[in-house]
């Protein structure tokens, strides 16, 4: 596992954590959101709200519809989101036709999109996304890039992990794990 990692992030920065398999990308992500405690070191940040997190397991309940799932994500953070906004987000991730069917009927890629939908809405100032590009098609990738662009303009920061270079011309800081 990695040792001695240090980085700093300004408002609006996008940080890509890259490295080969087993280099500890996921562990770093989990450490940042408090899901991994077996580390030494510190990180100190001043966040108005908890970070919005996308993990390996996307946290989508199979028996709920995309709408209900997205609502739950915000309820967890005690944020109230209007139904119209949720529908708008579902449209943005291209699931307008599936908004009302149970997630068990969606494909893996579609579920991933459901998990991405909260990122179209939230006012969380930091996103932490573990492998957001995996299991998603070309259209989805452009969608995420678009999200990133908007978010950094808006002044939110993003930390995401991926071992592949993202194609578009986003200003991305890189953190290489060995």
């Amino acid at each position: 596992m990695f040792e001695a990692v240090s980085f700093s992030l300004n408002i609006g920065d996008i940080l890509q954590v890259c490295g080969p398999n087993g280099s500890g990308k996921t562990t770093l992500m989990r450490t940042l959101v408090g899901l991994y405690k077996n580390y030494t070191g510190c990180f100190d940040w001043d966040l108005p709200s908890p970070p919005l997190y996308l993990g390996h397991r996307p946290g989508i309940n199979e028996n709920l519809t995309p709408r209900e799932n997205i609502k739950w994500v915000f309820e967890l953070n005690n944020q109230h989101i209007k139904a119209a906004d949720i529908d708008d987000a579902i449209r943005q991730v291209g699931l307008a036709e599936s908004a009302h069917i149970c997630c068990s009927d969606l494909s893996f890629g579609q579920k991933k999109r459901v998990a991405l939908a909260p990122f179209c809405l939230g006012k969380n100032s930091l996103w932490i996304m573990d492998e957001p590009f995996s299991g998603i098609d070309g259209v989805g990738i452009t969608l995420i890039e678009e999200l990133f662009r908007k978010r950094s303009l808006w002044g939110g920061s993003i930390i995401f992990s991926s071992h592949q270079a993202i194609p578009s011309g986003l200003a991305v800081k890189k953190l290489e794990l060995q």
Binding site: L35, H56, R57, P58, G59, I60, L76
Partner: peptide, 17 residues
């Protein structure tokens, strides 16, 4: 089990509820 496998449990922990 469902919560764990889907990852909902992680979201609850992250949200500090």
């Amino acid at each position: 089990d469902q919560d764990y496998e889907e990852g909902s449990l992680e979201l609850v922990v992250v949200s500090s509820n």
